[in-house]
Amino acid sequence: MSNVIVFCEHQNGNLKKGALELLSAARGSGLPVSALVIGPGANELAKQAFQFGATKAFTCESKDFAAYNSELYASVVERAIKNSGASILLASSSMLARDLFPRLAARVGGGLVSDCTELAFAGGAPRVRKPLYSGKCTAGVEFKGSGLKIILMRPNQLPVANPDSGKTGEIVPLDVAPMDLKTLVKEVVRGASEKLDLTEANIIVSGGRGLKEKENFKLLEELADVLGATVGASRAVVDSGWVPHGMQVGQTGKTVAPTLYIAVGISGAIQHLAGMTGSKVIVAINKDPEAPIFQKATYGIVGDLFEVVPVLTKEFRKVLQ
C-alpha cells in the first residue's frame, strides 16, 4: 500500500516550518504518513511530527548526525525508505536535502524533482509543478514507473494545518551500521546571522547598487529588524564585495519565494528577477521610474531610497508595535 514519508529538518529543538508544511500536505493525501527525523533530539522532535499527522516516526538520535555528512545520512535515510516501504518522499528543497536526496534517488532508482512550488494529492497520487528556465514558465511533473517518488518543495508554498496535541505515534529508532567514511566534515563555521535563511524567510528586504556603498546596508538591516525580515542583495553588490555571496538573490545566487519581497535600489536585471518573481507581494523602491523591477512589482515607489527607507522603517515600527 502506498504511503508517504516526510523528511523533517529541525533547528533549535523545533521542526522547521517547511517540515510542518509538508506534514500538513501529506496528511491531506489520505495516505499513511510517517516522519523521518535525524540527529540528537530526534525522538522528542518526533512528537511534534505526530501532532501534525504522522502516525509513525523513524528516528536516529546518534550524535554522529549532529552535523550533516552525506555518506552517513544517505545510509540511514536509505534504511528508513526501505523500512517504511514508502512510495512518496517529501522534503524541503533545502541545502541539505538538495545534496542528499539526488544521491538516494540514484541509489534506489527513484524519480526526483526539486525546487517544486505546487503540491496537491488526487486519489493518493501527488500532483506537482515546478518552475523551469529561471521561472519563465512552470511545468507539471509526471512520474513514470513504480519507483519511489521524491519531491523537494520550496518552503513557504503550502499552508500549515493546526496541530493536534493529543496525537501520538510509534517511534522506530534506526541504528547506524559502522561505515568506512571517505567524507569527513572537519568543521562547520556558523554564519553571523541568527535570522532565517533567505530560502526560508517569510519577508526579505533586498538591496542593490542604489545603496551606493556597503555601509548603507545598515538602513536595510534596520528595516529588516522591524519586520523580522532577512536581508538579501543583488549580484552587483555581491560582486563588489559589499556583502557575502550567501546573501545573493537571483541566478548564481538563491531562489527565494517569501510572502513579501522589498527591493530597494535594485534595477531588476533578468538574472535577479529569475530568483525572486515567485514572491507573493513585491515592493520596489527605486529612483528610476523606468527600472525593470517596477514591471514585476505589486507596489512601486519612485523616490530616493535614502529618504524613503528611514520613514518607511518608522511607519512599520509604529503599526507593528
Binding site: 512552470t138 507539471g140 520596489a284 512601486g300 515607489i301 519612485v302 520613514v311
Partner: peptide, 29 residues
C-alpha cells in the same frame, strides 16, 4: 526507463498592473 517527465508547461499568469504609490515620502510610506 525515464523516471520523470515535464508536461503541461505554462507561461506565468498575466500580472495585475503595478500599483504606483505617489505623494511625498510620508504619504508614500
Amino acid at each position: 526507463e525515464t523516471r520523470v517527465a515535464y508536461k503541461e508547461l505554462q507561461l506565468p499568469a498575466e500580472k495585475p498592473p503595478t500599483k504606483m504609490i505617489s505623494g511625498d515620502v510620508g504619504q508614500q510610506s
